[in-house]
Amino acid sequence: MLLGDILQFALNGVVTGCFYALMALGLSLVFGLMNIVNFAHGALFVLGGMLASEATNRLGLPFWAAVPAVLLVMWAVGVAIEGGLLARMRDAHILPVTLVTIGLSTFLVNTMLMLFGTEPKNVETGFSGPPFFLGDVIISQSRVLAIGVSAVAILATWVLIAHTRAGRAMRAVFQQPEAAALAGIPIARVHRFTFALGTTLAGLAGILLGAVFVVHPNTAEPAAVKAFVVIILGGIGSLPGAVLGGLLLGLAESLWGGFVSTGYMDAVGFVLVIAILLFRPSGLLGAPAAREG
């Protein structure tokens, strides 16, 4: 029975961990590569869920049509934010940029409250059939879907960054911008592409959250903070670290909530971060600060 409980909580933790991993992966691109402390990341995450909820519930689109449509909108939102706000501040200090993302977050959250109302929203997947039983462990179809889609998205992002010309250009721009410009890489386009990709990944995490649980604009800011916890845990700048950190946080919260107390669940991540940073100051998979050049 106890073993069954552990497995059940662990599985729940993996589902939550997938949301965290996707969000953190997007934030890691924006923060780890672009050095933008994006507090609006949580609001973009919620926006993905809200748009998917509207698309599936109000417009009645099937899930498989709604997801690409919402992702396309998220991409456009990312392009607009980068082009309209961040590109104008590319050489600015990190603090004014951070203030702008905080303002953007407030703006997005309140706009969503105005447009979509204050009720929590769910995303209709059509996967409402009976859950799967694996021994004592139960998993709903929508959770299997969330894990599957997350895995595909994480893998696709990794292939893009590690093995394509666009990914190489991204790494080049953020490792050594001047050399990238001199190699003829269009810097402005790479910034826009990277931010749009981060925004889209956040949106996808929101869609999946809405498919399994519910989304609500008021969760935007706590979600952003959690995504920061995850990338610090995994090691800033490390994309595998973001994924590992996300899964770890999901597991830790779920096991803590299941066996100890749900009251302190949100504190688990912070305790974990403090503990890990004590022993590994650059996070789980982060490269120790090294001389470059």
Partner: peptide
């Protein structure tokens, strides 16, 4: 100003971007 966390071959390939 080479790209430190890219391989020598990747650095050269990017030179021909």
């Amino acid at each position: 100003k080479v790209w430190p966390r890219m391989t020598v071959a990747e650095n050269l390939e990017l030179g021909a971007y």
